[in-house]
Design a protein around this nucleic acid. Sequence first.
DNA 1: GTGATAAGTGAGTAATTGCCCATGAGCGAA
DNA 2: TTCGCTCATGGGCAATTACTCACTTATCAC
Lengths: 317, 317
Amino acid sequence: MARRAEANNRLDDAARAGWLYYVAGRTQDEIATIMGISRQSAQRLVSLAMAERLIKVRLDHPIAACLEAAERLRERYDLRHVDVVPSDPGSSSTTVGIAEAGAAEIERWLKLPEPQVLAIGTGRTLKAAIDQLPAMECPQHRIVSLTGNIGLDGSAAYYNVIFSMADAVKARHFPMPLPVLASSAEERAVLHSQSLVQVALKLGAQANVAFVGVGELGPDAPLCQDGFLSQDEMGQLTKSGAAGEICGWMFDHDGALMAGSFNDRVASVPLPSRDNASVIGLAKGRRKYEALRAALKGRIINGIITDEATAAYLLNA
Amino acid sequence: MARRAEANNRLDDAARAGWLYYVAGRTQDEIATIMGISRQSAQRLVSLAMAERLIKVRLDHPIAACLEAAERLRERYDLRHVDVVPSDPGSSSTTVGIAEAGAAEIERWLKLPEPQVLAIGTGRTLKAAIDQLPAMECPQHRIVSLTGNIGLDGSAAYYNVIFSMADAVKARHFPMPLPVLASSAEERAVLHSQSLVQVALKLGAQANVAFVGVGELGPDAPLCQDGFLSQDEMGQLTKSGAAGEICGWMFDHDGALMAGSFNDRVASVPLPSRDNASVIGLAKGRRKYEALRAALKGRIINGIITDEATAAYLLNA
DNA sequence: GTGATAAGTGAGTAATTGCCCATGAGCGAA
DNA sequence: TTCGCTCATGGGCAATTACTCACTTATCAC
């Protein structure tokens, strides 16, 4: 209790310092005087406010190039939602920019007064976006995970994002108490017959919007890195024409879901219908180009949040 | 057209530079390199993005609204100290929040190494604040009560807070060995001539800061509940335009101290000069709105600790 | 109590940013 | 063409901010 109160006080101070710095435009020296602390402490509070994401910065200007690329992408692939953020050529991050933009779009949905069903995939990009969400109270909505949250060893998978989201957003959350991949189609059927899973499956079908990462394939794919797929299996998949995956669902270079053994074992909730729901993919970077192109071509997704460079590729492809 | 396009390009560049700076976290030097311009130009673009409000900064913390309200209150009423705490709509307490905030502010004064004279009023709110004070040793300060501590029946009045404060804070305390109200102006003069009272009066005039409650008037006013005022007297006061009281001093809806019999009988120490001292009122809640507004308008107080809802009223009044 | 650990603080310093100023390019008017 | 005006530019420098380090304070298990 005391500890909690102190932590809150510190965050309050951080918020106050951040407000004075970013909103009121005071210098850290002034803030130190105002708050009766040393300049260094003021600096720490300001940077704490940033680290704790108390301060949110967003760009409110349609950069012409991004906007134009977005418009052309929308037409080219008949998309419901397009967000193109500036590229940062020097950065190797695969999330900077689209995490913020993704969070903004998720927030937009969460702010709707009408009850919504939001479906959430998994992956590093989505995790980064979720981490940008502010604390919100939205009891009217329901949030369902599209993929299982159980790793190979039975532990909760790290990049299953619904738990991170539950921390920030007060709404009913429905995780998928399943592994990502069943050992066989039969096992999947058994798993899916569980009542808890049935709830998630039904909600997934009702989703108004889904936010998903887009996974590339290849030796360095996240699915391999996290141990869900052996290099052998990955090799077979790419050899048989797989171009990428979303929530585990493999699709080929035309964006058609691949028939066959692998997809029969994927335990994820089927992606919501692209006719009724927005399925928004978050991804950028050279390695995802081809997977994104295929997903867009096959209308696996009907919305995208990406960066300029990736948008340029998708327009020229 | 050309000019417009150029202006747009410039804003585009500004937006891009602002994005790289605030979202991607690059330094202006890096931005200069990326965009192929000089560092100074990058700096200009970033600052242009701010000036044009392309970059929007917002604070995502419960106290954000409080800070904003506080800033506006400070400007609106030219205040030295403003503290706005979050409202708790579900709570009927008239003290929760401001008690803690008040205690924090009192503590801040008590922690000053330079000797201070702190003046303390009375009332439930102030009592609640004092009760939040930690044990402290501050022999350098002096604390004086602004109001008498003798009740109608000769006993010590419960809500005279200086004794509670003496329990927690080791500093010299100067109570007022008087009733709140004398029976006449003449009696008050006699009472005030006592040497013990003279000490308190002199200290009160020297006070660096005063913490006071703000009392509303009406049938349910604390002054009535505690038996200091009959319903008849209260009725006369409100009929003659009284809007509230601080330490017993009645003021009208413009915050002017009321001339006449009642204030002539108030035995309290006069409020310290608002030119030299901070006089900080602690109050919140619907019933205190009008009294607070008047006190602020007439500069009876030049500091306030209240909650968001009350602040909103005071800003709209 | 006591030592280990974690968290916070202030000083000092390097990095970064904000601002003034002289310069020169662009442009319209004489 | 030339003058006068405006405005972006980069250099230089002072102000501000970020970061490291040594030290203090608080907490907790023993």
